[in-house]
Amino acid sequence: MTAPLLSVRSLCVDYEQRRAGVFGSRASTLRAVHDISFELSEGETLGIVGETGCGKTSLGKAILQLVPPAAGRVLWRGTDLARTDARTLTRLRSELQIVFQDPLSALNPRMPVGEIVAEPLRVHAADMSAQERRAAVADMFERVGLRPEMTSRYPNEFSSGQCQRISIARAMITGPKLLVCDEPVSALDVSIQAQICNLLRRLQRETGIAILFISHDLSVLRYMSHRVMVLYLGRLMEIAPRDELFENPRHPYSRALIEAIPEADPDRGPHDMADALPGEIPSALAPPSGCVFRTRCPIATPECARTRPPGESVSASHRVACHHWRDAHAQPR
């Protein structure tokens, strides 16, 4: 593979929280994304998985500068997006696009869908004539599996699966090089999820676009990704090529996530599920000391409460943050 398109270095995202109290409001800082580094190449899909509050959405937004990073660098083909001027950033946005979870709320209900898809062209290809724009939109509609004569209709005339196709068309119309997909199929019916997954894979084959695929659903993620990154409470637990992560997970949290996947298999009953990871996800406002996962970890030791495990390399492409990854084959009990 060539030089990475995207290189994220020690990225942090903070949110200011205001809490009303008797003596006025107090501000506290919630660090949603903690010191995350990774790279992404052309044509590659990196899956980002984790549970509520793991920072996966904040990470995606910070890369696109939709929320400002508190620290760290986002290098897009050598340019640091966090430090570049507004004009350069606007220009680069045509290369960086996003698809959201809820397709209906992501589309302006008062705009015909053809206009919605054409809008990025007005910004990023202002010299295009109206006729050229119409042709580009019609072509894009066809590529995402919609009939071009649908362009004059409004979003409420479409099903949620079709709305997600429209969102994807809008994101793809400027010919981006990176697509951040934030839970793009989670709000869709089961029979429609596969349609959208297949569409994204086909668009990637056709254009070589790089995809950051954010999802809580490991089965979908495995199907979509070349590499997988596991987050917990804002921190990177493990990152590895897909097959390596699923066949040989080194982090106890990755293992627990994989074991918790319900399988459409009547022989695997909930008796197995009863062995699921105990406890609740701690608050990001008061994360545990040392390793943030230790409060639910089946193999935690006193060491885990004292020091935070550094990211260690299992191999050139496999990193894990666990004190016990070497003996992690030592299963609990």
Partner: peptide
């Protein structure tokens, strides 16, 4: 169709999922 469109840990990621066409 539902069972075929569901990715699982046993699905070969190299092969496209068999989606049910159309809308509910």
């Amino acid at each position: 169709g539902l069972l075929a469109s569901l990715p699982s840990l046993a699905t070969d990621p190299a092969i496209d999922l068999t989606a049910i066409p159309g809308q509910p």
